[in-house]
């Protein structure tokens, strides 16, 4: 069942040189209990996509198109209604867990106030639920943890507490924007396992935004790759990562430290990332794409449907060979 359906989402931000579209014509769906990964160029609009679902765009930022969440249209929602949805049905965690935690308040105060803000529960009930939440996110000794301040925990534990906070009102959708970027591999593994368990046990839908293709591979069912505010490729994660069809996706994979051998030099995509407000015409990737032809420079790139479950936006589709991508 589809929980979130985004259609033709465009996010316009105010920049020094006037309004500019940071997200362009984006469409995607998330089913219940599914984990969608979003990866792509730094600055390609991933965070802005997430913030538009949360109704938290920066000052003067505007979303248009449609964001249908569980039957309700969020674009054009009144602030009062957005507040009802945000934090309750949709919750978000950030790279820096301190974004969602207050440094001076105990974990107990933060969790119970958050709960009581959204639900009519007694203090006692809120405390019981807080303990349960800390247990869910595997904080050892939840009773002691309730009395502590965020500074008394390590980065990994703080991220778990931020997840507990996000889960407090049993959201249907959790958006995690680089949840493990600041964490090392062992702690990261624990957080990933936790997210996956929550998906299974609570039928939670999750959007994970990360640059870490390993994390995406381990955790997500579907993957969307973005460049210059738009989707370039999407499909089942394993297929996209092992047999990419879009030249930009291929570039991301070629850049991984364990691919290619050229001493210490890694393989970066040639050229500069496009600048907001000055995206190239046609296929925005044409200035850096080694397969570009003249027809890539104007119009919109062709949408190529692959087996009904994948798609790319590329006029040339250079890897559509009988043997597939041969690397």
């Amino acid at each position: 069942m589809t929980l979130l359906s985004v259609r033709n989402l465009t996010v316009t931000l105010m920049t020094a040189s006037g309004p500019a579209d940071a997200v362009r014509n984006l469409s995607f769906d998330i089913e219940r209990g599914q984990i969608l990964g979003i990866a792509g160029e730094s600055g390609s609009g991933k965070t802005m996509t997430a913030l538009s679902i949360m109704g938290l765009l920066p000052y003067k930022g505007k979303a248009s198109g449609s964001i249908n969440f569980d039957g309700e249209e969020l674009v054009g929602f009144k602030p009062k209604d957005l507040r009802r949805v945000r934090g309750k049905d949709v919750a978000m965690i950030f790279q820096d867990p301190m974004t969602s935690l207050h440094p001076m308040l105990t974990i107990e105060t933060q969790l119970t106030e958050h709960l009581r803000h959204h639900r009519k529960v007694s203090k006692g009930e809120a405390r019981a639920r807080a303990l349960e939440l800390l247990d869910t996110v595997k904080i050892p000794d939840p009773k002691t943890a309730l009395k502590a301040h965020p500074s008394q925990f390590s980065g990994g534990m703080r991220q778990r507490i931020a997840i507990a906070m996000a889960l407090a009102c049993q959201p249907k959708l959790l958006i995690a924007d680089e949840p493990t970027t600041a964490l090392d591999v062992t702690v990261q593994a624990g957080i990933l396992k936790l997210l996956d368990e929550l998906r299974k046990s609570q039928n939670l839908s999750v959007i994970v935004i990360t640059h870490d293709l390993g994390v995406l591979s381990a955790l997500t069912n579907r993957l969307m790759i973005m460049y210059a505010g738009a989707e370039v490729e999407s499909g089942p994660t394993s297929q996209v990562l092992t047999r990419p069809r879009h030249p930009y996706t291929q570039g991301l994979i070629d850049a991984l430290p364990d691919s290619g051998a050229n001493g210490k030099r890694l393989i970066a995509i040639e050229g500069m990332p496009p600048e907001l407000g000055k995206f190239p015409t046609g296929c925005a990737f044409h200035t850096r794409c080694s397969f570009a032809r003249s027809e890539c420079k104007s119009g919109t790139p062709n949408k190529v449907d692959i087996d009904g479950i994948r798609r790319i936006f590329c006029t040339v589709d250079p890897f559509d060979t009988p043997a597939g991508v041969n690397r």
């Binding site: 990866a39 792509g40 160029e41 730094s42 390609s44 790279q95 680089e178 970027t181 600041a182 640059h211 293709l213 570039g251 991301l252 994979i253 850049a255 991984l256 430290p257 890694l266 393989i267 970066a268 995509i269 990332p273």
Partner: peptide, 9 residues
């Protein structure tokens, strides 16, 4: 750590 793989490279 906060960059896409190509920018990292």
């Amino acid at each position: 750590s906060a960059l896409d793989t190509s920018s990292q490279a």
